[in-house]
Design a protein around this nucleic acid. Structure first.
Lengths: 339, 339
DNA sequence: GCGCAACTCTGCAACGTTTCAGAATCGCGC
DNA sequence: GCGCGATTCTGAAACGTTGCAGAGTTGCGC
């Protein structure tokens, strides 16, 4: 009973007689051998059967983010089709040990989700001799990319508010940089944004504001600690404290928008009468009545997995940029301003 | 420049002169060597640095389940502390290929979440010479277990409704078996439930109902296709169609309860005036006003990771059963019946 | 009864790392 | 200048698998 035959018993039943196979399996069971060691198999085959997923934030946070989860659903569906496991690589942009996690990840390729420009893991992942797909940001030309036109989408959101007649607009953003800043963002600091998604949306907002003859530097931008309802609520409170004259608010995610909605309730404001709110993402929670920018998160995940799997099978083709369409969904949270 | 020295350059900087190390790293960069191959390292070390996570349902579904995600947050936090990756093993209870996924998963241990008694993956995972922790079900004595007293918790929920004066109570459950049944569950079929969580909650409900002098067999039980708002809504519609006299409804998850709430709205019922609803889990969405059973999902995940990691370091101790406390949270969705 | 193909099974090599023991070199005290 | 420990580097072995080439056996047609 050579090792090869045992291997065949598990992997190529047609290569040995059913009788021997049966006996091998029985013996294996008796001696407590649970089949070929996956780690050794991986080494021999040069494949792990796992797609690595890397998030900007430490793991607990993405699991709380409905938008990220929708992306993951698309990713998981496509991965499952091909029997791939999903491996979430630990670490975050500001953890000093993150490098080892990326270098040491036993995966066949990377999905890099919304990393900051200066995230060291980006470079390390790309340095690995593995295919990688960047989702949302940053938009590098040397790697496959799946995302949206954040600039245009933001311009559309602001445009909607402008068209309704709003002139005093404020912005609620998630993290702009990897450094711990939270709170109002000076116009001067709007240049050093390392989160490309936020940078693009700010740029789109700025363009729309300027085109309308308004002063971008006068628009208050609040950086929230994370994309959570609670952080959005706190951020909106600070914003409304500083800019009570604001009649409209553009939040960079629905979750932040929902937090802002709650803050408005806290302050006795009626939506949309006293304050219009536009969100971003069109997640499940937005269906209740939040005007928002819809983006195809599920599709993003699906395409990212698709591209990664392609990159695994064939020789590396030219990197592709998948820019998916977005659109404004007008629901009940926006209306013309009272004043 | 021997392989050993290169290895040391990456893993034990103190084992070689800084100069040589620098040169090795530089050369590595030049020839496109991105550090020791993780797969080979895993084989040599006999460790992968990844915890395997196995769900009952195919992957897309758990990502949509806030309760599962809360558990995962706890899991991820503890895992990240020790630099472990999380590997989601593909497959589901009814997929014929699931066996290979479990046998072939390159992980250091398994978190088995809420599997059905007859899920083949259970046996296969336990057969692997790796530690495993079962979360929620099934409650096997030979493996670490983390969960709650589902029977007592369900009895408490039903008890709350009974105490309010309800006598016509219906139950909304997620999947009871792995087979595709959806709809009302005959009293005769309540014996073959393979989802231990549901089985225990049914038993607890039955006990509470019987203790109150009511007939358990008269209580309608609806099996929904999944624990989603939409499935809950559909299930509740069927339930209320068949039992318009019901004044109270106990849903086995908050998500189902929220779906039922929506169904009630669809039918012009006012909550809690016309219908009382009790949920289960106390997820974020319940905070708005759903009476529910709180269970410590985050804690579950944390403890599961903790136990798994312990099992990895030391010799296998005696399996432990962690039964965490639950409690009823009374909010606005329950009230005494009108009639 | 011979030749050839089909069927079973086996041995070798290699995947790339890390551990361990040990070799070579260096520096220092005496 | 010698001995000895510290420092720096190396070689061999092993982790457990699988692909490949090939050996042995069986069966079938003619």
């Amino acid at each position: 009973m050579s090792p090869t035959t045992v291997s065949n018993a598990y992997n190529r039943p047609d290569q040995l007689s059913p009788a021997l196979r049966e006996q091998i399996l029985k013996t294996a069971d008796a001696v407590g051998y649970a089949g070929p060691d996956p780690i050794a198999r991986n080494l021999r085959r040069g494949r792990t059967g796992a797609l690595g997923v890397v998030f900007s934030e430490p793991l607990p946070y993405p699991f709380d983010d409905p938008t990220a989860m929708t992306m993951l659903q698309g990713l998981a569906e496509r991965a499952a089709d091909e029997q791939f496991a999903l491996t979430f690589v630990p670490g975050s942009r500001d953890l000093p040990t993150h490098g080892n996690s990326i270098r040491g990840a036993a995966v066949d390729g990377f999905i890099l989700h919304s990393l900051h420009d200066d995230d060291a893991r980006l470079r390390l992942a790309i340095a690995r001799p593995l295919p990688a797909v960047i989702v949302d940001s940053p938009r590098l030309t040397e790697v496959d990319f799946v995302g949206i036109d954040d600039r245009a989408a933001a311009a559309e959101a602001i445009g909607h508010l402008l068209a309704l007649g709003h002139r005093a607009i404020a912005i609620l953003s998630f993290r702009l940089t990897g450094h711990g800043h939270v709170g109002l963002v000076d116009a001067a600091d709007r240049g050093g944004v390392t989160a490309a998604v936020a940078r693009e949306r700010l740029a789109g907002s700025a363009a729309a504001i300027s085109d309308a003859g308004l002063i971008w530097e006068d628009v208050l931008v609040e950086e929230c600690a994370a994309s959570t309802v609670e952080a959005g609520r706190r951020g909106a409170h600070e914003l409304l404290e500083r800019a009570p004259e604001a009649t409209a608010l553009f939040a960079f995610s629905d979750v932040l928008a929902l937090g802002a909605w709650r803050a408005a309730l806290d302050r006795g404001l009626e939506i949309p009468r006293d304050l219009s709110i536009v969100g971003f993402d069109d997640c499940a929670g937005a269906a209740e009545g939040l005007t928002t920018i819809h983006q195809p998160e599920h599709e993003k995940g699906r395409i990212a997995a698709e591209r990664l799997i392609e990159g695994l099978s064939g020789p590396a083709g030219r990197p592709e940029q998948h820019i998916l369409p977005t659109h404004l969904v007008v629901r009940g949270s926006t209306a013309p301003p009272l004043r």
